[in-house]
């Protein structure tokens, strides 16, 4: 059973399971969206004293922080009990592009970006910090992230969500095709 679960899960298993998680959250009387937790964290840290945007009852959002804590536990389980040591079965063409950027396909994350050697260089640190900054800023400006817009928003046929998802792809495509050759 553990061996079976440890293999990579195909999209036609993962996709429906994500729907099950979303519907479960609806059944619990809540919503499905991760990025609003970042606002909750700011509010809980006292950002509401100075900034109106964070002046809300963050305690009413603790359920979502608990969901977030679950994500961390899910990560622990996946990298221990359900660990799969094989490298990711990428398209060989993708591997060629990666190698041309000096990145090898090993593990879950490229060591060239996430390894401690990379982290302690100015460039490596800035890539991660700016990447994270853009995700946080962009998600709040767009009003949601992959879970809130791409999955629950599109499921509810929300036009603003479609516009945001188009934005996600404009940004992602510009990044990998135009900016990566400059950065890497």
């Amino acid at each position: 059973m553990i061996d079976f679960l440890s293999q990579p899960w195909p999209w036609y298993i993962a996709g429906p399971l994500i729907t099950v998680i979303m519907v479960s959250m609806f059944f619990f009387g809540k919503t499905f969206g991760v990025s609003s937790n970042l606002s909750t964290i700011c509010a809980a840290a006292g950002a509401g004293k100075k900034i109106e945007f964070f002046r809300f009852d963050w305690k009413s959002k603790v359920w979502n922080l608990i969901f977030l804590a679950g994500l961390v536990i899910g990560g622990v389980i996946s990298s221990t009990i359900l660990k799969n040591p094989d490298k990711i079965d990428l398209n060989p063409k993708t591997e060629e592009v990666l190698n041309a950027h000096g990145i090898m396909n090993e593990g879950v994350l490229p060591v060239e970006l996430f390894g401690l050697d990379a982290l302690f260089t100015m460039k490596g640190f800035l890539i991660l910090l700016i990447g994270g900054f853009l995700v946080g800023f962009g998600a709040r400006y767009a009003g949601g992230c992959t879970s809130g817009h791409a999955i629950s928003g599109l499921s509810n046929l929300q036009l603003p969500s479609l516009v945001a998802v188009i934005g996600f792809f404009i940004g992602g495509l510009l990044m990998v095709h135009l900016l990566f050759p400059i950065i890497f």
Binding site: I130, G131, L134, V135, A164, G172
Partner: peptide
Amino acid sequence: NGILGGTLFGFGWALAGACPG
């Protein structure tokens, strides 16, 4: 905001390779 914020999000998603979850 959807198109501008979405594009910034996309930059970060591709660079860091991770969305918030």
